[in-house]
Design a protein around this nucleic acid. Structure first.
Lengths: 116, 116
DNA sequence: TCCTTAGTTCAATGATTATTGAACAATTGA
DNA sequence: TCAATTGTTCAATAATCATTGAACTAAGGA
């Protein structure tokens, strides 16, 4: 039902990926996702990065550009980096992004009101 | 005189670099610059990529983000990638960008006969 | 000096962006 | 069924973006 649109592997456009990553909030999301790439994160786990509404916005940007995949499960949505697709289309790119994103400061240190 | 502002090496912000590169016209510029990285190109040599005014706009975006350096000489301005600075700040990143940008189609086919 | 070359700046335009709070939808558990 | 959890959508706002043509500056050559 709620099928979340994302580009096919071959449709991922480099400029769109770069634009999606060109934002401190979204770089922080990628940095967190990369910290444990095998484990998809639910949206709530990003609460340190921004507001609930803002995260929904930024995560959809990343998804629509083809950077992340979102899998609904119950009321939650599990987000993961599209590692295989990005490596296939743009070899070496994702690793260089992650290497830098990992060491970037968080854009905001403020958690949400409903946080844990 | 016309001193062209660009960030110091340490001031180059990753999100700004990504935003600057997240545009097809600017990716095309990088692709051309990378084709012969030792030889800086004058603005006119990019005429295949866009209009004179548009190029001035996009080149200043790349310069202000810290992606390219611009050296004025006479009435011309010679543009080059800030290879050493980018490699120092974001290892592997520039190479992965160039690898992809090299094989991207031109945003517009209204090229002049700018055959090198 | 006058003209050409090379590129910038300006103003106007329409499009896209990020952010906010309020309202909404869907699922789960009591 | 009711309430809590999880996350999206909507509308409004202010900011930035990319594109255009006209006007402009600066340097060089005749």
């Amino acid at each position: 039902m709620t099928y979340l649109p994302q580009p096919e592997t071959e449709q991922i456009a480099f400029a769109n990926v770069l634009t999606a990553l060109g934002d401190e909030t979204r770089l922080a999301i990628i940095g967190l996702l990369a910290r444990n790439e095998e484990n998809p994160m639910s949206c709530g786990q990003f609460s340190g990065v921004g507001s609930k509404t803002g995260l929904s916005y930024h995560l959809s940007k990343l998804r629509e550009a083809g950077v992340v995949h979102v899998r609904p499960e119950g009321t939650k949505r599990y987000v993961s980096i599209r590692r295989a697709d990005l490596d296939q289309r743009f070899p070496g790119f994702l690793d260089s992004i992650i290497a830098t994103a990992q060491h970037l400061p968080m854009p905001r240190e403020e958690a949400q009101s409903t946080a844990d």
